[in-house]
Design a binder for these strands. Structure first.
Lengths: 195, 195
DNA sequence: CCTATATTACCGACTAGTTGGTAGACATGC
DNA sequence: GCATGTCTACCAACTAGTCGGTAATATAGG
């Protein structure tokens, strides 16, 4: 029950979006869970688009903060990537955030309202930027081994993680995700060329 | 206008699912496009679940036929994988089938009716089986280079392709998909170890 | 060949319930 | 007084799904 009503609405909305995507959750669902009336939700977020955009903005801001924090905590770019992936591994395992909502909404993109779609694309751009920068630094410092241009490697990495989230859903197990993360990190590690 | 009414319904349903996922398309959408009444669709597919299960079954059957055909046409497992990926690349580029509906529905899994979810998981299992068999054969014949057990490599491959489909949506360009496919094939190729 | 009987495919009109969204009233606190 | 937050009550539009009925097409049996 922590946080303001608006924040609790965002929390539940985030959870429901992660579960069902855009179309399959309703204001009524949120209302019953947050224990406020539907009208209250409309007071804070007049349109469904507004609500989902707000959820995505918060998600994107948190991502930005998290990545910045990671950049501060770990000097080695390889470690940064490791932390990023292990963070998601923990989320999926503990089911606190079983999938990245931007990945889910990315799949549904053609049917999303324009401003929601824009916000989803911002997330992809943000994540791509961080991944590319991290890979580039790692390549310079020789702590990451690449075979493609950093931009392409960033795309490959992002796709792998998103796909792994979906597979974890399909298999109803976080093990696939862990294995894919481990294999990916091993591929990027300069140490173990053939172990 | 080719095919029976039931087939045309399945065609449009498949297209709409690929666009919007499960919840965001309606019988009315199909009715207006196929130019039959809603009641007609219910006549052929009583429940929405039935319709989507039928779409998935047909999709899975076509996949099976396509893979079997590929196994017959190409003796080299590496070529088979190449054909598989290039097939999707063409679909995405020409927008004939902009995404694998099983991947999209995989992301929406927690909110799907049980029998639809089961059918989605069948698709994952089928594809995994074929990938693993192909990788295993390729490893034996030394036409494919792996660093993990074939089952894990199959999971990695599937996740990469699915994630690449979502990225293509987000970037509104098939280029990302092509690049990811090329990088992946290069990684699996035994020839160019470092080019 | 010619009825009688199913079966299939289709439709307009309907139902019960849900959807996102609105209007207006009532608190609470600055 | 006025802004903020919340509520009940409401709405039009849409949802999946049903109903009763019609036309056409088989499939019989005599």
């Amino acid at each position: 029950m922590a946080g303001s009503t608006a924040e609790r609405i965002l929390d539940v909305a985030h959870k429901l979006i992660a579960d069902r995507g855009y179309a399959a959750f309703s204001y009524a669902d949120i209302a019953s869970e947050v224990k406020v009336s539907k009208a209250t939700i409309h007071h804070h977020f007049p349109l469904k688009e507004d609500l989902v955009v707000a959820v995505l903005r918060r998600h994107r801001q948190r991502l930005g903060e998290g990545l910045a924090q990671m950049d501060g905590a770990a000097s080695d770019p390889f470690d940064r990537l490791t932390y990023y992936m292990k963070y998601w591994e923990a989320c999926i395992q503990k089911k606190t955030e079983p999938i990245c909502i931007a990945a889910l909404l990315g799949a549904e993109l053609p049917s999303l309202p324009a401003d929601v779609a824009t916000e989803v694309r911002f997330h992809f751009a943000d994540l791509h930027r961080w991944l590319q920068q991290t890979l580039e630094l790692g390549e310079k410092q020789k702590s990451i081994r690449l075979t493609q241009a950093t931009s392409r490697e960033a795309d490959l990495l992002m796709a792998t993680v998103h796909g792994a989230m979906i597979s974890a859903r399909a298999y109803q197990s976080s093990a696939v995700f862990s294995q894919i993360v481990d294999a990916t990190l091993q591929r990027l590690s300069p140490a173990a060329v053939s172990a």
